[in-house]
Design a protein around this nucleic acid. Sequence first.
DNA 1: ACCGCCCTTGACGTTAACGTCAGGTTCGGG
DNA 2: CCCGAACCTGACGTTAACGTCAAGGGCGGT
Lengths: 153, 153
Amino acid sequence: MSATSEAVAGPGREELFSIGAAAAMSGVSERALRYYQELGLITPCARTPGGMRRYSEDDLARVARIRELQTLLGLNLDEIAVVLRNDDRLAEIKAVYHDEHTGAEERANLAGECLVLLEQLHTTVQGKRAALDTFLADLDARIARVRAALTPK
Amino acid sequence: MSATSEAVAGPGREELFSIGAAAAMSGVSERALRYYQELGLITPCARTPGGMRRYSEDDLARVARIRELQTLLGLNLDEIAVVLRNDDRLAEIKAVYHDEHTGAEERANLAGECLVLLEQLHTTVQGKRAALDTFLADLDARIARVRAALTPK
DNA sequence: ACCGCCCTTGACGTTAACGTCAGGTTCGGG
DNA sequence: CCCGAACCTGACGTTAACGTCAAGGGCGGT
């Protein structure tokens, strides 16, 4: 009756990828994926009985996150590890927060912790953005001057 | 009559710095300064008769530029070399442009070349800024949601 | 059952951007 | 003139982030 060999209930039909596919999709090398794992940045959500890595969509998103933090913020992998740990903590908080038997007071505490973590990251990014804006403004000014020189009248 | 040992005419009293002073002022190591020179990124504006490097304010500004391109844009030193060559070309153009006997047509050409160089850099920076803005917007959204959860009524 | 391809771990190699050390030289204050 | 601090030029070491290669093991199609 089922097109797949799986018979588990629910609409969550999660497709898993080999390391080769994951590397191709995320745009990093297989070696990089294994290296990230060595550093504890990602762990493939599963392994085949034979021991081969299987990556989920969430895993791929995490890899994308790593690349983003690398290229956009210029963080090294150790710093990225910290950010990812915060991400994980945030997800954990989210789960507990929405749990039935979580008191109102505890919810406030959890949300407060979230704010700390998020605003911490926000601050560093904000700083980077400000510096970049200054840089860009200077560049714009120079361009404007040259433009003015080109069309004086 | 002069407070300094120099008697050259003009208001341009340029102070020069040893590599130790230059390193301290620019916040990079002496080794880095020598390394940048190996790669042709900077050349101290002068040497003492004995062969010791002397850095001018302009040299320091160039070092600051290097650091900015490194930390802000994440460029490697080879890419920075390209940007610096463009900077030099722009300065050269500026000099020729303001020269007495430079024709109007040639001035237009020079200004045109400036625009190409500047806008090229502008594009890459703009892209970076856009990506960073997206990142920051997502972060802001998350923060806003948590804030809303904290003060529902 | 077999074959070819993809995957595994382990180990060593590579590149960029410096750090560090050795052995000699220069500078400036007394 | 002398001395200690700072500087010079090699040359080799270091770290991060992978690349690459070797020797085996799993996996899917026939």
